[in-house]
Simulated assay, not measured.
Amino acid sequence: MNNKALIIFTRNPELGKVKTRLAKTIGDEKTLEIYKELLLHTRNETQHIDCDKFLFYDTTIVENDIWSTEYFNKVLQAPGDLGNKMQAAFDSLFQKEYNHCVVVGSDLFDLKASIIENAFKALQNNDAVVGPAEDGGYYLLGLNQSTPAVFNNKEWGTATVFNATMNDLKNVKVQLLETLNDIDTFEDLERSGYNINFKEQLL
């Protein structure tokens, strides 16, 4: 068994249920199209990383989708807020005796396999690794053991999350990765350089 586990959190790609802040600007259909491209990008970047990979769906496990069971173990997210979901995911894999666990979302065109590989390398000599997001959150978190504090008492989806998380990790050795832009709003999408014609949608 590989001692490294990658956790990928994803939302089931359903119209009107993904990236609602982005959808307020460009509409549900364009937003779903973009989210599906984000999922495809995430799959392509993670599929061949040397680790065991666990895809956590938010509502329903889908057997025949872009995530092949040849590469991805399919799991359902636990109930509760994002912190509860992530803690349950990490704890389930530490209980399976993985030594290094990393979680990423599925909303970054900037995500690269090399970034995740560097996170696993960092966990060889650090207690935790964090990839800050431009919006004040984080796009990646890696741990070597269950650390409940980082998942509790957070205002998820706000600019306070990264700083609050770093405060929880102040007594352990932490490696920071490069800051990336995750896609939550139209402004995020513009900064990403994503090439799409919004003119018709916005008129």
Results as ranks from 00 to 15, higher is better:
residue 75 V to Q: 15
residue 56 F to A: 14
residue 40 L to E: 13
residue 122 A to R: 04
residue 81 D to G: 13
residue 152 N to A: 05
residue 80 G to V: 02
residue 142 G to H: 12
residue 59 T to C: 04
residue 170 K to I: 13
residue 68 S to C: 07
residue 51 C to E: 06
residue 88 A to W: 10
residue 80 G to P: 02
residue 157 G to T: 14
residue 86 M to E: 07
residue 124 Q to I: 12
residue 72 F to K: 09
residue 80 G to M: 05
residue 112 K to P: 01
residue 34 I to Q: 05
residue 186 F to G: 11
residue 74 K to A: 03
residue 109 F to R: 03
residue 174 V to N: 10
residue 161 V to W: 06
residue 158 T to Q: 08
residue 93 L to T: 13
residue 123 L to K: 06
residue 112 K to S: 02
residue 129 V to F: 11
residue 190 E to C: 13
residue 154 K to T: 05
residue 182 D to G: 04
residue 83 G to F: 02
residue 31 T to F: 00
residue 129 V to Q: 06
residue 20 T to G: 01
residue 137 G to Q: 11
residue 22 L to T: 01
residue 68 S to V: 06
residue 181 N to Q: 08
residue 109 F to V: 06
residue 23 A to F: 02
residue 25 T to C: 07
residue 67 W to P: 09
residue 71 Y to D: 10
residue 111 L to M: 12
residue 45 E to G: 04
residue 27 G to E: 00
residue 142 G to M: 10
residue 82 L to P: 01
residue 177 L to R: 13
residue 114 S to G: 02
residue 190 E to A: 13
residue 141 L to V: 08
residue 99 N to F: 06
residue 90 F to Y: 12
residue 187 E to N: 15
residue 93 L to Y: 10
residue 51 C to H: 12
residue 12 N to W: 12
residue 140 L to G: 04
residue 165 T to V: 10
residue 139 Y to F: 05
residue 24 K to L: 13
residue 74 K to L: 03
residue 30 K to F: 04
residue 182 D to N: 13
residue 187 E to T: 15
residue 10 T to A: 05
residue 6 L to Y: 03
residue 182 D to M: 07
residue 179 T to K: 14
residue 139 Y to M: 06
residue 163 N to Y: 10
